[in-house]
């Protein structure tokens, strides 16, 4: 049980990162970038190719991956927000869904359908024991890294001028534009931050799940669901949603086995929304509409 909770926290920290990447884009642009899961996958496969296959230095591999992911996210933004004047959330959703499908298929054609083991970038030495639970560097590292990243993003959004401009843009695009905020730049920035978080999630999760062309779909769906569970429009809510999602997944897996895990998890997700339709920390829809 203790092991489940720990691994739940680890995977939850990763879902929280992905949920936060969804929320950053949604909060500023009001659209969902449904290809985010596939961005995580691309980051994983790029890192794998450079660091493992081509034997690049780790740092160089990571840098190149980040560069590639930033380019990719810019490309996604171009597709989703083509007509910036009237962003239709449904169209943007379907466009990013389509882009995700293409990325997924392209990865299959490039890297094949086999999962690859991914080296732990954080080390696997066991640090300490709690009862029978062995806590290793990787597990602790994921949690610490995720918390650090999320704290930085949270600080950035709340305390810096650019962060405040992002909040202003999300509240009223026209008014923000009128006071001199470059709305396009803010959109690009939110896509970029989101992509960086997705890349971080990729480096952190790959040692656990292996790297494969199909890994992104699952992470993307769960990150999106976790963001809705917390609050898609508020970063902190999304983070808590991610942690809860990871914990629930590990506990359900412990109780009912890994086969029954996903359907029960999604069932719980729907049931929670029945009770708390706006997510656990969200605003009501009329509040958002008004």
């Amino acid at each position: 049980m203790l092991e489940s909770i720990f691994s739940g926290l680890v995977i939850g920290a990763i879902y929280a990162l992905v949920a936060l990447s969804f929320s950053i884009i949604f909060a500023t642009t009001n659209i969902v970038n449904f290809a985010l899961g596939e961005v995580v996958m691309v980051a994983c496969m790029m890192a794998l190719t450079t660091i493992v296959t081509m034997q690049w230095p780790v740092l160089a591999g990571i840098l190149l991956t980040i560069l590639a992911v930033l380019l990719l996210s810019y490309f996604l933004q171009l597709i989703a927000l083509k007509r910036l004047q009237r962003v239709d959330p449904n169209t943007a959703f379907m466009l990013t869904l389509a882009a995700g499908i293409i990325l997924n298929n392209a990865a299959l054609l490039i890297w094949g359908d086999k999962p690859f083991p991914f080296p732990s970038l954080l080390g696997e030495r066991i640090i300490f024991h709690i009862g029978r639970l062995a806590v290793n560097q990787q597990g602790i590292g994921v949690i610490v890294a995720a918390i650090l990243l999320m704290a930085v993003v949270d600080w950035f959004q709340r305390k810096t001028l650019i962060g405040k401009a992002m909040v202003a843009t999300s509240l009223d695009r026209e008014a923000a534009s009128a006071v001199g905020i470059n709305v396009n730049l803010i959109y690009t920035l939110s896509f970029a931050i989101s992509a960086l978080l997705a890349a971080a999630a990729a480096f952190l999760i790959a040692p656990f799940t292996f790297a494969s062309y199909y890994m992104g779909t699952d992470i993307g769906l769960k990150g999106f669901a976790a963001a809705i569970l917390g609050s898609l429009s508020q970063g902190r809510g999304a983070i808590v949603g991610g942690l809860l999602f990871g914990l629930a997944e590990a506990i359900l897996s412990y109780l009912f086995g890994s086969n029954a895990r996903d359907p029960l998890l999604y069932l719980a997700f729907i049931l929670v929304l029945m009770v708390k339709p706006t997510g656990l920390f969200g605003l009501s829809r009329w509040q958002r509409l008004a």
């Binding site: 659209i31 769906l221 669901a225 086969n259 029954a260 996903d262 729907i270 829809r285």
Partner: peptide, 29 residues
């Protein structure tokens, strides 16, 4: 629909995917 339509538009996409996954896995299980 009961939980889904209290939510903003795009959320329905996720709850419907969740339903699809539940049904599909239920067939397998």
């Amino acid at each position: 629909g009961i939980p889904s339509f209290r939510l903003a538009g795009v959320y329905l996409a996720m709850t419907t995917i969740a339903l699809n996954i539940i049904v599909h896995k239920a067939i397998i299980l």
